[in-house]
Amino acid sequence: MADIAKSASGGGGEHDGESRRDFLFLAAGAMGAVGAAAVVWPLIDSLNPAADVLALASTEVDLSPVEVGQAITVTWRGKPVFIRHRTEQEIEQARSVPLDELVDPATDESRVIEAPWLVMVGICTHLGCVPLGQKPSEPKGDFGGWFCPCHGSHYDTSGRIRKGPAPLNLVVPEYAFDDETTITIG
């Protein structure tokens, strides 16, 4: 530190030597910081999902036994996925809502591939509870979809948030129809 103070006050003939030392000091410090960051990153990244966790990232589902009006819950990446075989009435209900009434505007068409099949991650977008409404005995909320008992969020028949603290619609995962009655999620 004394060296830096000396060079700052203008050391005359020693000026060249001092500034070279300053440069070396800064370069070594910067190299050390980059090195430390490079060493710390593997430690931090080791806490991210591991290869085996990522390998279990897709799930195949057979839809053929699910009748109209029924719903099933499957597990994908440790989370519940809601699959509902919607009735004509439920589809009509979801499609007749004006977009400006929605908290998180999205058309029903944009949330499905085949109109009868609604596929969503069954996790409330508020704080991660599993909403009720899959079983006939469970409450479906004020909009005929799902109701989260933790903090009172109501979702409609398209899984869109209509009332309560949740900020977003239930998430539609990436999925594709392998044939008419089979989908692969993820």
Partner: peptide, 30 residues
Amino acid sequence: TVITNLFSAIPLVGESIVTWLWGGFSVDNP
């Protein structure tokens, strides 16, 4: 689940932080 999800409220990086905290896509073995 509820408490770790609090971190998802952080703008932009919230979801990545929650995945990092979990070491997966939900509260699980890691």
